[in-house]
Nucleic acid binder design. Structure first.
Length: 113
DNA sequence: CACTTGACTTATT
DNA sequence: TAATAAGCCAAGT
């Protein structure tokens, strides 16, 4: 069974606990790509296709850049959708920036392992 | 098969 | 502190 990169990324994103977030680079590093954050972003860009193909929903709103900034908000249905989803999970956001980012940050390396 | 693009990150100037 | 370059690699053209 050859696991594709996007399968691995999806697998991790699906395991992000509710009310927590992680970053592209963290996921990439966990998969062995120290600087493969762009590939994670690429998977997220295809997450809509994946959602229909695999009939699952990927919590892409729980993946932000390493500054806690919602850089991928414009790829959602509406630019505010991402923030709304996060706020619905008790995550505070101000100016598209996650507040207390270190607190809600989810590290698969230490918490999933 | 070669070139471009990208929801990123780190280092350098 | 802010702007630029380089590094990473899968898909699309």
């Amino acid at each position: 069974m050859k696991t594709t990169f996007q399968q691995d990324v999806i697998d991790i994103v699906l395991q992000i606990p509710k009310g927590r977030v992680t970053s592209y680079g963290t996921i990439a590093k966990f998969l062995g790509h120290n600087r493969g954050a762009r590939m994670v972003g690429w998977v997220m860009n295809n997450c809509h296709v994946i959602n229909e193909t695999k009939q699952i929903k990927i919590p892409a709103h729980r993946v932000v850049n390493r500054n806690g900034l919602l850089t991928g908000r414009f790829h959602f249905e509406t630019p505010t959708k991402m923030q709304e989803l996060l706020e619905a999970e008790s995550i505070k956001i101000k100016d598209h920036q996650i507040q207390d980012f270190e607190t809600v940050f989810w590290n698969p390396q230490t918490e999933l392992l």
